[in-house]
């Protein structure tokens, strides 16, 4: 229960940061990337500040033997720089550039009750579910063939 409550409070902090920084505003995001037009450098300040705080904080936190609510830290173990990583990141950028929404910006934008945020999040969820079922189907076929 405590674990769930604390996560809710941390989510509240995250959403506040996204909202006041401008990351929930597609126009501001797109202008950050529009160097040849209406450039707005604000998002460099968002990412710079977030990165600095996280890098310093992680250094302190990861020195401990375990987090508060778990037996150990869950850090990603994948190391390979493979095609899904690069192609996926490239695709993500295309979609971010078309819409101005990234997942971390779009979810808090739902709280602004803007229709475009709902349309984006619904189709993004569709994309995640589609990609996951495709990968599972391919993995299933591969294991059926090898069996």
């Amino acid at each position: 229960m405590q674990k769930v409550l604390v996560a809710g409070l941390i989510g509240l902090l995250f959403g506040t940061g996204i909202a006041i920084s401008g990351m929930a505003n597609p126009a501001k995001v797109l202008n950050f990337f529009d160097f040849a037009g209406t450039w707005d450098p604000s998002l460099a300040f968002v990412m710079g500040a977030a990165l600095l705080v996280t890098a310093l904080g992680y250094r302190l936190v990861l020195r401990r033997s375990a987090p508060l609510f778990d037996k150990g830290f869950h850090l990603p173990t994948a190391r390979r720089i493979d095609l899904p990583l690069v192609a996926g990141a490239m695709l993500f950028g295309v979609g971010w550039g078309i819409t101005g929404f990234c997942p971390g910006g779009a979810i808090p934008a739902l709280g602004l009750a803007e229709l475009d945020a709902f349309v984006f999040v619904a189709s993004m969820i569709g994309g995640i579910v589609l990609a996951r079922s495709t990968r599972l189907a391919l993995a299933g076929r591969a294991s059926a063939q090898s069996a």
């Binding site: 996926g88 979609g95 997942p103 999040v121 969820i125 994309g127 995640i128 990609a131």
Partner: peptide
């Protein structure tokens, strides 16, 4: 764009 973002961030 939403679909592309969903597929992209998954992979």
């Amino acid at each position: 764009g939403g679909l592309i973002v969903g597929v992209g961030v998954y992979f």
